[in-house]
């Protein structure tokens, strides 16, 4: 088991390093950064000063090495626009993104586990088909548009919820629903297939032979076993949702990490952009690692492969 965890951690580190390299290359795509930082009215001297000040006159590999070595100890550089350290900026906005992600995941699980179970119990019937169609509707709805529709309906027409900002818990309801919608189809399908597999297994047949009630079979036996993969995938989904929250945060003007990234892209503030890419990727890598280890702990068969 220790060997499995070590191997998994080494893989995670390697992936993180690759993503760091990509994030660095990404921000160097635009040619001369000093010119874009200096802005349209800058003179040649200004550009030279900026190039020196930010270390952009050094060869790329030196810039890369210094960025990596500082990022490894938690120093992500300074923002050009906000005049603050990137770590501070991200740390200040992370709670909002995390809250949004957890609310979204909670809502998604609340919808997808009952739906998936229902579809599995009635496999092949019209109920099953209806659930499939519902998941397809969720998949086909553009999240930003869904957010706008919610704003018009619940914010304006009914006046139940605030339209944008982050003052109270009510501000997280609509963004949470939109984010939940993006994760529900995958989670529902997974619950469904997990439950179908569980229902067909030997221990369910035994339980049925013992004469247990249908309810007890479904909830006490099948669901508990099907829940294991769902919970571990939920961790991975959370990673995806944090990455996708940039859309939701922009629509609802929630000043989280995604909104910060969006602003920074518009302002050519590349240390922030590459740091957000790195932070989101790292969170995702950690979550998948956690879910893999959790799976291996629960299912000894995975460890040997």
């Amino acid at each position: 088991m220790v060997r499995f965890i070590l191997r998994r951690a080494a893989l995670g580190l390697l992936v993180a390093l690759t993503v760091m390299t990509l994030a660095f290359m990404l921000t160097r795509l635009s040619g001369d950064l000093a010119i874009s930082i200096a802005g349209p009215g800058a003179t040649q001297e200004d550009i030279e000063i900026i190039r020196k000040a930010y270390g952009l006159d050094q060869p790329l590999y030196i810039q890369f090495a210094s960025w990596i070595s500082r990022a490894l100890v938690g120093d992500l550089g300074n923002s050009y626009f906000f005049k603050d350290s990137v770590s501070n900026l991200i740390a200040a906005r992370m709670p909002i993104t995390m809250t949004l992600g957890l609310v979204g995941l909670g809502l998604a699980l609340l919808v997808s586990i009952p739906l998936g179970t229902l579809a599995a119990m009635r496999e092949g019937t019209w109920v099953d088909r209806a659930v499939t169609v519902v998941t397809m509707i969720g998949q086909a709805t553009p999240s930003f548009w869904f957010g706008l529709i919610l704003m018009i309906t619940f914010g304006l027409t009914l006046g139940w919820l605030p339209i944008s900002g982050t003052g109270s818990w009510q501000h997280f309801v609509m963004p949470g629903i939109v984010l939940a919608m993006t994760a529900t189809p995958a989670l529902t399908r997974l619950t469904r297939s997990g439950m179908i597999e569980a229902i067909a297994s030997d221990y369910i047949r035994t339980a049925r032979a013992k004469g247990l009630t249908r309810r007890s079979i479904i909830f006490k036996h099948a669901l508990r076993n099907a829940a294991i993969p769902v919970v571990s995938i939920a961790a991975v989904q959370l990673g995806f949702m944090l990455g996708g929250s940039i859309v939701v945060e922009t629509v609802f003007a929630l000043h989280g990490v995604g909104f910060l990234a969006w602003e920074s892209i518009a302002k050519n503030d590349f240390p922030v952009v590459q740091a957000v890419v790195l932070v989101l990727a790292t969170i995702y890598i950690c979550l998948t690692m956690l879910s893999d280890i959790l799976n291996a702990l629960l299912d000894p068969r995975i460890r040997s492969t």
């Binding site: 795509l29 518009a266 989101l280 998948t288």
Partner: peptide, 19 residues
């Protein structure tokens, strides 16, 4: 694995934003 750990919307926005 690397591809899956990259946040798609963010990276796509950054590329288009820069170029």
């Amino acid at each position: 694995t690397c591809r899956l750990s990259i946040p798609v919307v963010l990276v796509a926005l950054a590329v288009v934003g820069l170029l």
